[in-house]
Amino acid sequence: MAHLTPPVITPALARTAAPSFRLRSTSLNSVRLRRVFDLFDRNGDGEITVPELHLALDRLGLGADLDELAGAVAAYVRPGRAGLGFDDFEAFHCALGIALFGDGSAVEPKAEEEEEEMREAFRVFDENGDGYISAAELQAVLDKLGLLDGRSIDGVRRMISAVDRDRDGRVDFFEFKNMMRTIELAAS
């Protein structure tokens, strides 16, 4: 279903978007978007309602006015539905990206741009900026997102050990990058 109405971009909504809002790697973007959708769909019903989206943005420190958000999302909610299905969410995300950053979807990313996007994503997890993602940092991010995986430090340590090649108990940028490329390949 193609939506022709662009989302209403208010100054408050524009402030929440970072340049990494839209990765230029299509397959990685699709995987990331599906994960974001699943995270925001708090009750797992396959739809993201405006209150769910508002709560998720709030928890990420990207608070948006509830009425402005509802106005921007309204054109993407299909008749008879309470919220955005994944296809609707994807269309909304795409239109929001175009409205904020222009249509750069036809441009293939340069290696430097991909590297910088990876570094920016890594910095989200590396809260203290020491160049490593520790179990505590990963747990903090998972907790901010309201994920159950973040409640058990042992579970977080197991997640880290799955990608920790040098077995130092933390994830460096190289390990993070390999993990992200593995995710991208699995999605292709």
Rank of each mutant, 00 (worst) to 15 (best):
28 L>H: 03
135 A>H: 03
68 E>R: 03
90 E>V: 01
180 M>N: 01
22 R>W: 04
18 A>T: 15
177 K>G: 02
33 L>Q: 00
186 A>W: 05
131 G>Y: 00
20 S>D: 13
91 A>K: 05
53 L>E: 07
65 D>T: 00
108 E>V: 13
64 A>C: 14
90 E>R: 14
125 F>H: 04
52 E>A: 06
119 R>I: 01
85 G>N: 07
122 F>N: 04
156 V>T: 00
139 Q>I: 01
37 F>W: 03
179 M>W: 11
85 G>S: 14
127 E>T: 12
94 C>V: 14
69 L>V: 00
67 D>P: 05
35 R>L: 14
2 A>W: 04
116 E>M: 08
128 N>K: 10
177 K>M: 07
144 K>Q: 14
61 G>D: 06
169 G>C: 04
108 E>H: 10
52 E>F: 01
30 S>F: 12
106 A>C: 09
53 L>T: 04
109 P>I: 10
142 L>E: 01
86 F>E: 03
166 D>H: 11
74 A>W: 03
140 A>T: 12
39 L>Y: 12
36 V>T: 15
65 D>F: 05
120 E>Y: 11
19 P>G: 08
34 R>A: 08
75 A>L: 02
20 S>F: 13
21 F>P: 04
36 V>F: 11
187 A>E: 15
149 D>N: 11
40 F>H: 01
44 G>H: 09
175 E>L: 02
167 R>I: 02
112 E>P: 01
60 L>V: 03
17 A>V: 14
38 D>E: 14
141 V>Y: 06
56 A>N: 09
177 K>S: 06
171 V>S: 04
160 I>L: 09
78 R>P: 00
94 C>I: 10
74 A>C: 06
187 A>K: 03
21 F>Q: 03
186 A>G: 09
94 C>G: 05
